[in-house]
Design a protein around this nucleic acid. Sequence first.
DNA 1: TAAAACCCTACCGATTTACTCGTATTTAGT
DNA 2: ACTAAATACGAGTAAATCGGTAGGGTTTTA
Lengths: 150, 150
Amino acid sequence: MKLSTKGRYGLRAVVELAARQDEGPVSLSSIAAEQNVSEAYLEQLMRSLKNAGIVGTARGKTGGYLLKKKPEELSVGEVLRALEGSTAIADCVGTAEASVCENACTCSARPLFLTLQNRIDAVLDATTIRDLTEDYMEQKRRIEHAKSLS
Amino acid sequence: MKLSTKGRYGLRAVVELAARQDEGPVSLSSIAAEQNVSEAYLEQLMRSLKNAGIVGTARGKTGGYLLKKKPEELSVGEVLRALEGSTAIADCVGTAEASVCENACTCSARPLFLTLQNRIDAVLDATTIRDLTEDYMEQKRRIEHAKSLS
DNA sequence: TAAAACCCTACCGATTTACTCGTATTTAGT
DNA sequence: ACTAAATACGAGTAAATCGGTAGGGTTTTA
C-alpha cells in the first residue's frame, strides 16, 4: 500500500511551486536542490505533471515550471493520479475497466476494497495543494525562527 | 498504493475460514481450490497468519486451519498487517520508528500522509471479518439462486 | 550564439513480488 | 507398524517494478 517516490517527490515539487508562485517560472535545478533529488529524475516527474495539465512550462534561458491551476483548486488526488497513474488499491476498483479480475463477482473482499477506495479518494480529493502549502510555509517559518535564536 | 496478492489472497482465505467455521479444520487444498490460488503460495500466507495468532492449525491427516478469533472481533486491519507487514502509506508514518526520513521535519507532505494514514486505518480497523463474511455468503446465495433458475 | 532551459528514450542495478520445490514432521485410520 | 494425508519450514527463482542514470536531442532567449 506504499506510495512510490514518484508520488512523494512529485507532490512536494508541486507544493514548492505553489509556495513560489509569484517568482515566475521556477527552474528545475532549484526545485531539485531544495528537495535534494536528482534533477534528471525530477524532470521525468515534471513531465507527467505537465502532460496532465497540472503544471505549465516556460522555455528558454530564464524558463522553468509554474503551476497552471490555483493551489486551492488543485487536489492532492489529481496530482497523485498524474504521478502514479492511479490511486487504486486493487485493479478491480480502479477506473480502468480493462483489468477487472475474473473472480470479481464472487470476491469476498471486493466490497471492502470499494468502500476503502472511496474513503481514500475522498481524503485525497478533499485535500488541496493550498492546504499542504500553508502547513509547509508555516513549518519553514518556525525553523527559521529557531535558527535565529541559536 | 496497491495491495499485493499477499493481502488479497490472505484476506479472502480468512473470510473463507470464517464462513466454514463449524466444519472443523479446513484443509489448505480446499481453500486453494475454492480461491483458485496456488496451494504452495497460500501456505506461506497461512504461516504469516498463524505467526500473528490469527489462525490456528491442526496437524496430521484430518488437519487444517481454523480461525482463532471470532470474526466479529477480528479487524481487516489486523489481518492485512499480518500479511503485508504494515499498512503504512509511507515509511515516515509507519509504526517502526527506525525508518523515518531525514527530511521529515520539513516535508510538506507529511501532515497529509499522517491524516491519510489515520483515515485508512480507521476504515481497516472498523471493518471486521464478519462484515466481509456476511457479504460473501449473501453473494454466494444469490449466485446459487441464479443458477437454479437457468 | 552560446548557455540554459525543456524533451525524449533507452538502459540498468537493486529490490520486491509472486511464486515453486524439496524435505521434514505430525497424525488418523488400517 | 504402516501409510496416506495433512501441515512446517527454508531455500531458491523468474519476472516485474522501483528508483534512478545517461546521453542524446530541440527550443528559446539574454
